[in-house]
C-alpha cells in the first residue's frame, strides 16, 4: 500500500511530501524507520524528534496503518 507523508517546517527543504510503499499493514513506528531509509540517515534525528499525525490526531508509534492514506510528519513546534 501507499502512504503519503506531508512535510512541514524543516522537512520542507525535502519537498512537500513523499510516498512510502509498504507491504501490508505497518505501525507508525515502522513508518518512522521506512522514512529514515527513504529520505536519508542525515534526517534520522529530526525524524525521531517528530510525530506522525492525521488531520485530527497525533499518532502513537504503536498504532497500525491498515490501508493507503495520507499522514503528516510534524517536527518540533514553535508556534506563537
Amino acid at each position: 500500500m501507499q502512504i503519503t507523508i506531508s512535510f512541514y517546517g524543516a522537512f520542507r527543504r525535502l519537498g512537500s511530501s513523499v510516498v512510502l510503499n509498504t507491504q501490508g499493514a505497518v505501525t507508525v513506528g515502522d513508518l518512522r524507520n521506512i522514512l529514515v531509509e527513504e529520505i536519508g540517515k542525515e534526517n534520522k534525528a529530526l525524524i525521531y524528534d517528530s510525530v506522525f499525525a492525521n488531520d485530527t490526531t497525533i499518532l502513537n508509534d504503536g498504532e497500525k496503518i491498515l490501508s493507503s492514506c495520507g499522514l503528516s510528519i510534524l517536527p518540533p513546534v514553535c508556534g506563537g
Binding site: V51, P75, V77, C78, G79, G80
Partner: peptide, 29 residues
C-alpha cells in the same frame, strides 16, 4: 509555543534563512 503545530523559518538580512528549533511533540523526546 509548546504544542501548536506551527513552524518558523527566519529570513536574515544577509540573505540566509533558518528553520527555528522547537519543542518536540513526542512524549519520549
Amino acid at each position: 509555543k509548546k504544542r501548536v503545530p506551527v513552524w518558523k523559518q527566519e529570513h536574515y538580512t544577509d540573505g540566509s534563512s533558518d528553520w527555528l528549533p522547537g519543542h518536540s511533540l513526542r512524549k519520549r523526546a
